[in-house]
Amino acid sequence: MKYELNLEQLCPATFAFQVIGGKWNLPILACLSEQESIRYNELKRRLNGITGTTLTNCLKELIDNGIVNRQQFNEIPPRVEYSLTPSGKELVPLIEAIVAWGEKNIHALEANQS
């Protein structure tokens, strides 16, 4: 969903979380950050548990917000690839930090449950 917001009254943190928030947006961005471009079916395979409709809707939202680029190749069969835009690439260090935090803390949680 593209946001129609009063940018003068919007908190930058709120804006950022509205653009990248949601259950699947960060996992999608993490997958896209790992390689230059990726096809839809490969992306869906990497995102265990996401439905096709959800992936399509999230990609549309990220495209509308200028984070993800969709490139269609006029080939037979048709080929579509997704990649991060320059704005999306600015998020890569943040995504890497979030993933590192998750890796560290999931192991701590596992240790506490043992």
Rank of each mutant, 00 (worst) to 15 (best):
Y3I: 07
E4M: 10
E4L: 12
L5I: 14
L5H: 04
C11S: 15
C11R: 14
C11Y: 12
P12K: 02
A13S: 08
A13L: 11
A16W: 01
F17Q: 11
Q18Y: 07
V19H: 01
I20A: 09
G22V: 01
W24N: 13
N25C: 11
N25D: 08
P27F: 04
I28K: 04
L29D: 02
C31D: 03
E34P: 01
E36N: 06
Y40Q: 04
N41K: 06
E42R: 10
K44W: 01
K44P: 00
R45T: 07
I50F: 04
G52L: 05
T54I: 09
T54R: 06
T54S: 13
N57M: 08
C58M: 09
I63G: 01
I63A: 08
N65S: 10
G66D: 09
I67W: 01
Q71E: 13
F73H: 15
P77N: 06
P77E: 06
E81D: 15
L84F: 07
S87E: 13
S87F: 12
K89Q: 14
I95R: 00
A97N: 10
A97F: 05
W101K: 12
E103N: 08
N105S: 05
N105K: 07
I106W: 05
A108M: 09
L109A: 15
E110N: 14
N112F: 15
N112M: 14
N112Y: 13
